[in-house]
């Protein structure tokens, strides 16, 4: 079952080497087969409510509080998003990787918790999940966001 978790497993492998990729702080959520596609499951992990979901893109865990007006994200909807494109060219992508807030419809990446397109300053927590022996486990540790590729600085010519 775990073979369909490319994003989250990759994220797991990015855990901080100091604390190590430990399974010790992973808590059992439920059996994988009990997860209904695109339906959130509210669980308490490390004393905090976390929304765990299986989508077409994998298994994800996010914090339950929307950074906008604190709606409960476990009532959110799993979607994709329209990516920036040229006029009259619609590009729907990231299906199963986006959650929309149940109230105002703000979109967040399930992988990183970031607000799509930077619409909001705040972000959701995105937690590490693991599918092992047919069961889903979640850690209170966050997925470490990928470092943005640093843009090349234009070299300044002497005298400018």
């Amino acid at each position: 079952m775990s073979e369909s978790q490319p994003g989250t497993l990759a994220a797991l492998r990015r855990t901080d080497p100091a604390t190590g990729p430990s399974s010790e702080d992973f808590e059992y959520v439920c059996d994988y087969d009990d997860m209904v596609l695109d339906e959130f499951r509210s669980v308490e992990i490390g004393g905090r409510e976390v929304c765990v979901v299986r989508t077409l893109a994998g298994v994800f865990a996010i914090g339950s509080t929307c950074p906008h007006q604190a709606a409960n994200m476990c009532a959110g909807a799993i979607k994709g998003t329209m990516e920036p494109s040229e006029r009259n060219e619609y590009r729907f992508a990231q299906e199963g990787e986006i959650v929309t807030c149940p109230w105002h419809g703000y979109e967040f990446s399930l992988r990183t918790g970031a607000s799509v397109g930077g619409a909001l300053k705040g972000r959701l927590g995105a937690y590490q999940v693991e599918v092992r022996d047919g069961a889903v486990y979640c850690s209170p540790r966050r997925v470490r966001p990928e470092r943005p590729v640093r843009a090349e600085r234009p070299t300044r010519k002497a005298g400018e």
Partner: peptide, 9 residues
Amino acid sequence: HPADTQRLD
């Protein structure tokens, strides 16, 4: 509309 016009909850 950009989203469903109702709160999902």
